[in-house]
Design a protein around this nucleic acid. Sequence first.
DNA 1: CTGAAAGCGCTTACAG
DNA 2: CTGAAAGCGCTTACAG
Lengths: 363, 363
Amino acid sequence: MPAAKVTLRDVAVLAGVHSGTASRALNESTRSLVNADTVRRVTEAANSLGYRPNHLARSFKTQRTFSIGVIIPDLNNPLFPPIVRGIEDRLASAGYVALLGNTENDAGRERRIFAEMEARHVDGLVLATARREDPMLLGVARNAPPIVLVNRIVEDHAFSSVSVDDGAGIRLVVEHLRALGHRRIAHVAGPQELSTGFGRYRGFQASMRSAGLEIDPKLVSFSSSFSIAEGARCAAEVLAARPRPSAIVAANDMLALGCYAEIEECGLRCPDGVSLVGFNDMPFVDRLTPPLTTVRIPHAEIGAQAAELILERIDQPDSPLKSLLLAPELVVRGSTVQGPKLNGKMSASSRRSPSRSEDPSRS
Amino acid sequence: MPAAKVTLRDVAVLAGVHSGTASRALNESTRSLVNADTVRRVTEAANSLGYRPNHLARSFKTQRTFSIGVIIPDLNNPLFPPIVRGIEDRLASAGYVALLGNTENDAGRERRIFAEMEARHVDGLVLATARREDPMLLGVARNAPPIVLVNRIVEDHAFSSVSVDDGAGIRLVVEHLRALGHRRIAHVAGPQELSTGFGRYRGFQASMRSAGLEIDPKLVSFSSSFSIAEGARCAAEVLAARPRPSAIVAANDMLALGCYAEIEECGLRCPDGVSLVGFNDMPFVDRLTPPLTTVRIPHAEIGAQAAELILERIDQPDSPLKSLLLAPELVVRGSTVQGPKLNGKMSASSRRSPSRSEDPSRS
DNA sequence: CTGAAAGCGCTTACAG
DNA sequence: CTGAAAGCGCTTACAG
């Protein structure tokens, strides 16, 4: 049991050296400056006294805290816990700790949390709250700590970032649905002021086009937030269109959850009446009925890479900015089935659907 | 834009006072000691210079960090994010910040995280990792920071704590099932070294007894962790008993998730073949098929109260320990239906089951 | 390779 | 009510 307060001076006295020497002996980076035998004596003294360096004194002196601010919209959104864990685990292994802040997507809260983190002298910040055009981020002071964006990014790349290739993810989705014979495909889009919502919508447009499918404006509805309620509202909109869509591409799993509810509400069934695809592969969406086909993103990896980037920037503040784009992966589950052209009146074998040969991705 | 570095000295010079006076003027608790006019001058000087007190210097001097360590098993367990948010929100409003640590239920990690938090001089700790007999907790040094336990508690109450009345929760469950006519009720119990697993098991015993129902040992299976896999394993065990149970009480929702899978695996259906109840009301269990009947606990409130307790202990280290026991609430959803006695061969009206009159809770 | 000393920016008894 | 000063426990140029 260590005594209440053992300081570096105590160690130095016991080892018969000056406290400056003890400091150098105990510090990894300065150890090489001191005689090996002195190092041994100091180390022994430290051990025998149960010396624990005072973090606060060191931080005060060096103005480094070995802490990183992590700002997210809401920890209760299941997307974030695995990302946060990815960040924390990587940081912990480097002796850093994360300070977490939830903005609730509120600009005022965001500013307050940012200021609080600065006041606490975090060595860096990881932000999952960026908007495509983000007034706060554009206004950050020159002497603000290094910043890395995660998941969401800003329009002009003034920051390092780790995100997922949203367009590629949606392409996998559209091609999957196309291959199942779906032609009237709806999109419940995310908020367009976020890079994720915007990128997935653009990806939807692009991959529908290259799949040779038409985008009916009535089959696209824009949510104002990635929430279940908005998913239901937008699903109601696209399901009201005639002819009805045979599949819905939701911009994320929360929206997809709302779609499930609304599909049922309309007296339809998923997947028989409407196929449904989400994005993110949130925990437990594989336990829904039917299990959700979705786009898996490497949550923990995203977090770990973001932590890696911020640590790099701290060690080398002048290193060039990096934007990592991680590859998503389609996870096919029960919520997507053959479209109406293939299992409808025309049997797939008796008559080749003309659309098949028109499909440029197959020619 | 504040200059790179404005210190208290700069403010004092501009206001024409000594830095000690400036400190007193700016500090809430000492402000009353200084002349109102001086306060005004100092405040103005501080504002005009954009002075931001250096947190690090203050912490170093006062040995207080306004930070609290929060140690949980795993942020990816959906039980914890809402609790953590409850803690953080309450802490933030008091100017505190939370440092999060995930133990993965590993004793070594737990020790390491605990030591790290101590080294960072957290002002207090909130632990959600307690075991009923917890060697680490019993061994904490006399000069360790104040500790509050959350959700799980230790056997002898040497700590303040906030938890849920597990026995009362299970009683609600058993009475609900009893009222539906279930008599062969199984229990997929949690780990018995945790107060939650143990308390719910004891609650199961007690409320079965007072409901006049027999506990068949073959209908109780003990899991080794609150996981889906363990839930499935234990469900398989109790479903193998003959006569089969008509209902399963799972010690928490993760175990219930495993029960769902195993019920299906056995070719049974929930709720027609077997009713199922969980515990915790984790996010999204209302979206399962069928939606899970479960015991709701006030997650955010639990966190907020824990934060409250730790703040109290920091302000008044000698205040008496408190153990808050929050009331759970039954949420009835689709996973529980009438038991076999009432919708089986014997109609409820044609023949009164003898067990009804034997039921002491109804006499 | 080591010692002596300054100093990081505050807070807080201690005088007056 | 305010000033002068000590000091929290380290790190790090600066000498030698």
